[in-house]
Amino acid sequence: MSQRATKKFTVAEFDDEYVWLKLREGEKRGLQFAIPLDNGCQDELESLNEGEKITATLESMNERNTAWQCVEIQREEEENGRTAMPADD
């Protein structure tokens, strides 16, 4: 049973297989999530820079919703130029 969530993040850090995205809003802001670099949005993820602000749509990879993969990414600049978030793919 997978869930999707669209959230605002800051790119915190890259390690070998994952990029760590830091939640920017909400009560739990500051928490970091590891997103696999080779499982969705590969090119977009690899082109990100540490400290960059993005809005990402993530999809859980397991029933407990403890692992997430990327579905869509919008950079802050792109987002500012739009009037609304894109609809579900």
Binding site: Q3, A5, K7, L23, G26, E27, L31, T66
Partner: peptide
């Protein structure tokens, strides 16, 4: 710490 995205939503 890992599924807070769901709860938060």
């Amino acid at each position: 710490t890992r599924n807070v995205l769901v709860d938060d939503d």
